[in-house]
Simulated scan of single mutants.
Amino acid sequence: MKDVKAPRSDSYREYLIESLKEPEEAAGYIGAILEEKDPEPALLRNAIRKVIEARIRMNAFSESAKEHHEKLDKMLTASGGAEIYSLVELLEALGFRLEVTVAEIELRAESESTDFVESELCPEPANL
Score class of each variant (00 low, 15 high):
R57Y: 05
E99G: 04
I33H: 03
E36M: 07
K74T: 08
E112V: 04
M58H: 02
L107M: 09
K71V: 14
L90Y: 15
A6K: 15
P23E: 07
V117W: 04
E63H: 13
A82V: 03
E120W: 08
A54G: 00
T101C: 08
S11V: 14
S86N: 13
E70Y: 07
E24P: 03
L76D: 00
F116N: 00
R13S: 09
F96A: 15
L34F: 05
A60L: 03
D73G: 00
E22R: 12
K71H: 12
P123I: 05
K5G: 13
E25F: 04
L107W: 07
M58A: 11
R108W: 08
E83M: 12
I17C: 04
A26V: 02
A27Q: 04
S111L: 13
S11E: 15
R108V: 13
G80E: 01
L72G: 01
L43T: 05
L76Y: 00
C122R: 10
E70M: 08
S64D: 13
C122N: 11
A82C: 03
R13F: 10
Y12R: 13
L44C: 01
T101M: 06
P41R: 07
A32D: 11
E104S: 13
R8W: 12
S111F: 05
K50W: 01
L98P: 00
A42S: 12
F116C: 05
E104K: 12
